[in-house]
């Protein structure tokens, strides 16, 4: 395909273009930037890349990214261990943490159930969730899973799995986004918001 005539540079461009959201042009620009940068910056970057692989693992309790056995959230004793928020992926933990609204702990499933994509319940951290709910004095499990067909199936699965435990199972609301105008929303979203309305 494209070639700069320098195999070492081509390899770097090719590796950059594997990153999400990076096309060939951007990869080329990044590679040239590296080429022109100070050696000290480049070795710092290389160390950071290696270090993120070598010094992180999955939290043994919630499967979030962790530096130690437990992630910083699970290790924080000020957080409410009676409240569990179930999410698909690590990126969802980050999104919810940025809102500063949630003071409980997380449980990262690592995906949603999707037979067509080959993801079965056993491929997710569902058994671990059931075990956590039984031992740790959990009062509430909040499902913060995207409301796709697969996400819905996963929520249905979890609520059945936890049916016999004493915990309260909730799901995040879906409907009108903050700062939006009703007239610009699609009708299906408005319909859903009306179906899930609540008392004032």
């Amino acid at each position: 395909m494209h070639t700069s005539g320098l195999p070492v540079l081509d390899k770097l461009i090719n590796d950059f273009s594997k990153l999400p959201g990076i096309g060939y042009k951007t990869a080329q620009r990044l590679a040239l930037f590296i080429l022109k940068s100070d050696s000290s910056y480049v070795s710092e970057l290389a160390d950071a890349l290696l270090s993120v692989k070598e010094n992180t693992r999955l939290c043994e309790q919630c499967f979030n990214i962790a530096e130690h056995e437990r992630c910083s959230i699970c290790a924080d004793t000020r957080r409410d261990a009676g409240l569990l928020c179930v999410v698909e992926d690590v990126v969802d933990v980050m999104a919810i943490e940025e809102s500063h609204e949630f003071r409980g702990l997380y449980h990262v499933l690592g995906g949603v159930i999707s037979p067509l994509a080959g993801t079965m319940p056993d491929d997710l951290h569902l058994k671990e969730l059931a075990a956590r709910v039984q031992v740790n004095g959990v009062r509430e499990v909040l499902l913060a899973i995207n409301p796709s067909t697969e996400g819905e199936a996963t929520m249905i699965y979890i609520s059945r799995m936890l049916r016999d435990s004493d915990v309260r199972i909730t799901r995040i609301a879906s409907g009108v986004p903050l700062g939006s105008h009703l007239e610009f929303l699609d009708t299906a979203t408005i319909g859903r918001a009306i179906q899930t309305r609540r008392d004032l």
């Binding site: 159930i113 079965m120 319940p121 067909t149 819905e152 199936a153 996963t154 249905i156 699965y157 059945r160």
Partner: peptide, 8 residues
């Protein structure tokens, strides 16, 4: 494992 799909 069919029930989440059956329900939908």
């Amino acid at each position: 494992i069919l029930f989440p799909w059956d329900e939908q």
